[in-house]
Write a protein that binds this DNA or RNA. Structure first.
Lengths: 227, 227
DNA sequence: AGTGGTTTGTGAACACCGTTCATGAACGCC
DNA sequence: GGCGTTCATGAACGGTGTTCACAAACCACT
């Protein structure tokens, strides 16, 4: 915060003296380098996984000394956090089209499919967000409710809110609980695929479909009584 | 394998010469030290998490030089793998009582509850098995089908096999798929709890119940038609 | 009892890692 | 041109996993 305030103060002074072009350029360059660092870091993570992202390798890739990175980020974790935030925004963006579907019962499978697809298409990003460091994942939900984390969860909740509002669900049903169950299901499918790569199992897309239809309709043709 | 063969050869020779007490003691001591290393390693992992398990700290704790550890394990990962195997055996043991329940529809919630309980009661063990290194998790399922990994999954499959055999499920239903969905669900619940610690949500036990009843009966009071 | 060979243990080193800090260079302002 | 701020860095610190030459302990055999 100190640095930001200082920069703002400098800008204001420059504006007052009628000479702010240089300060603007400097801040722009600073922001550009920060962005470049994040771009390269993302590339490394996507290609080799988060554990392979070392400050020295990253510094080499952006052609600066390792110490320079610390002028733009507090530490390695701060870089990871930023990548997490952006990764989660990508996930939310992937969910967005499916979230537009009007009928909640049609929306549900589309959302699940989109979620799982994102996880499988961006495994290292997904791992970074949900499976690397609890500190990273926790941070994505702890802060303001307008960030991608809570908003994504909200998209899931909305499905059941809509169903409930339309009188299509039993009164008293808690939409958040069902959303959490759904989330656990799709997250489970993705994360098991990403970790137990050797496990045979059915294709993730098919499994997602089975998950959704079972959650909606229950076990196929179930006879409750004893056999 | 070489070392083992050598030891066997030595034992045989000793037996032939009528003097195998010493070789026995040596092997026993060797196995004891190996076991002690694993015990201490487990303690560290359970208390401080797998990332905190360093070879030097472990060597200090067992009062040997770091290099000595490499006489008993190929590397750090080999220790982790062994801890994984044993952790999974514990998980299977936790599932065992629930697996004994005769009625599959009663068994299902018990299994789910036991699974989730294990994950929450042994978070670092669960993390080690399923969330640290893909190589570790993969190894647990890749090898022989009698290991704890496939056997645990088999316990889940059995629920649906029994239902199907009793004619209580629609013919053509694939038990493995349903088991996988169930597994994804409970794993999702546990792993989200362990990573997104900040997320509020309903208690895991309640959520597990909702998951199971929804999977069995479908969405409560669902009206399929448009509102 | 002494000797030789095997097993067991280790200190030191290598190549990394994240991070810090004093030093130096570049830059914009006066 | 001189000065103060900003930017960049080399070198260092303490940590990591791992290897390897070397030493010590041990057991078997003469």
């Amino acid at each position: 915060m100190n640095a930001v305030h200082l920069l703002l103060a400098v800008q204001l002074v420059k504006a007052y003296t009628g000479n702010m072009g240089i300060a603007e350029r400097k801040e722009r360059q600073r922001a550009e380098l920060r962005e470049q660092i994040l771009r390269v870091a993302r590339d490394i993570v996507v290609k080799e996984g988060f554990p392979a992202l070392s400050m020295r390798k990253l510094a080499d890739a952006v052609e600066y000394a390792p110490a320079t990175l610390y002028l733009h980020f507090e530490n390695r974790e701060a870089i990871a956090k930023e990548l997490c935030v952006r990764g989660f925004q990508d996930l939310l963006a992937t969910l967005e089209p499916a979230a537009q579907v009007e009928d909640p019962l049609e929306r549900l499978p589309k959302l699940a499919e989109a979620y799982v697809r994102f996880g499988l298409e961006h495994p290292e990003t997904y791992r970074l967000i949900f499976m690397e460091d609890p500190k990273l994942s926790t941070a994505l939900f702890g802060d303001n409710p307008e960030s991608a984390g809570p908003r994504s969860f909200g998209v899931l909740v909305q499905v059941f809110v809509n169903l409930l509002a339309a009188g299509r669900l039993e009164a008293g049903t808690k939409p958040e609980q069902l959303a959490e169950v759904l989330w656990a299901g799709v997250h489970g499918i993705v994360s098991l695929r990403l970790t137990c790569t050797g496990f045979p199992g059915t294709p993730a897309e098919e499994l997602t479909q089975v998950l959704v239809t079972t959650l909606v309709k229950g076990l196929p043709g179930l006879k409750a009584g004893r056999a």
